[in-house]
Write a protein that binds this DNA or RNA. Structure first.
Lengths: 200, 200
DNA sequence: ACACCTCCATACGGTGGCGTATGTTTCTCC
DNA sequence: GGAGAAACATACGCCACCGTATGGAGGTGT
């Protein structure tokens, strides 16, 4: 019943692993949302059939769970690692906001997150979103604390930063024409937000 | 082919109108998103059958279009009317932000909007969202202009305000535990956002 | 009171996806 | 090189929903 990977063996070219299915699931989610994570279309996309899938997973739900779990670990780790390369707290903060705002890291990941927000009520998605969001607020608040702000104020700033990020993501998708078009304008826009959030 | 209402007649109790169906569609959308706008479940919910529906509408798509159109007109009018009751621009701005942030107007409408954001890519939803968002940014920018800010700065502030609104809506849904819990805290939080956006 | 139009119910065929049952291939190991 | 397990393919029944076809009930005008 557990979905752990067996010992790798030789892994001949035309045989799928649990990882292949979860990757395909995340891809599908980035394109068409959680509803696009459907067994039969995925199988067709991978050049296989359902028979393969139901050997690796108990059902569609198990695939969703596996995909979300992998996204949660991969995604948060990647961003934090990128930010922690910076030395001082202010540089970290700027790097963090610039990264998530411009989605330099991965537009793919951004699509997945939008898809998750679009299905925030889903029993498997909700806890993941809750954890990731809480972690983001906490981490950003920590940066503000390192900048010398008191705990309450730092937490508040973290909340504001995450709010701005989420709002920007929604805005860019719901009405791309209102958001600054050129890279330079967008950069100025992000700078402005950073100034606002970091204003004493 | 046109879906205009016929002359009202007597309208016996157990007969459905186009308006009944669109209302039910918006209700369903508030509960389960666009996917919940399904003909047969709606018919059951209304105590009718598909036969009734397909007399009033050409297909499911026509119902979605009608529902979205009604939401667009009703919703935008309601908020603007409420705000325009205020006298000076600053009071208008505060009323606007407080209203949309606290969702005092209608939690029902808020659910519908979240559902629309969740389906922002849908061919019928996308243009509605684009228009509404643009109108919000423009209207808020107009308020800032009335406060004496230059056009470019006003537009930027309007963008920021809408961003904060959307982000807050997403945050409240994706991670309710991170957002201030008590009414007093929430009020302070909103006040703080207003200060930030209106800061010179 | 009869024909007529409006509104709706019933019944049907079609599609897409889920999950299962049961073969069939391919690898592994001895 | 043959047994057994692992990884698939095929075929099936099932459900939910869409859209159509057709008949029937209820108002409407004359």
């Amino acid at each position: 019943m557990d979905m752990v990977e067996r010992r790798p063996r030789k892994q001949s070219a035309s045989r799928l692993t649990v990882g292949d299915w979860t990757s395909a699931a995340l891809d599908a989610m980035a394109r068409g949302g959680l509803a696009a994570v459907a067994v039969e279309p995925l199988a067709t996309h991978l050049g296989a059939t359902k028979g393969s899938f139901y050997w690796h997973f108990a059902n569609r739900d198990a695939l969703i769970e596996a995909a979300l779990q992998r996204w949660e670990t991969d995604h948060t780790d990647a961003v934090i690692a990128l930010v922690e390369e910076q030395a001082d707290p202010l540089a970290k903060l700027r790097t963090l906001i610039e990264t998530v705002m411009e989605s330099t890291a991965s537009p793919h990941a951004d699509s997945i997150e939008l898809a998750m927000l679009a299905t925030a009520d889903h029993p498997h998605v909700a806890p993941v979103l809750a954890r990731v969001t809480e972690r983001r607020v906490a981490y950003t608040a920590e940066l503000f604390r390192a900048l010398g702000l008191p705990a309450e104020e730092a937490r508040y700033r973290g909340l504001l930063a995450v709010t701005a990020y989420l709002g920007h993501a929604q805005l860019a998708r719901a009405a791309p024409q209102v958001v600054p078009g050129t890279a330079a304008e967008r950069r100025a826009y992000v700078d402005r937000i950073i100034d606002l959030v970091t204003a004493s």
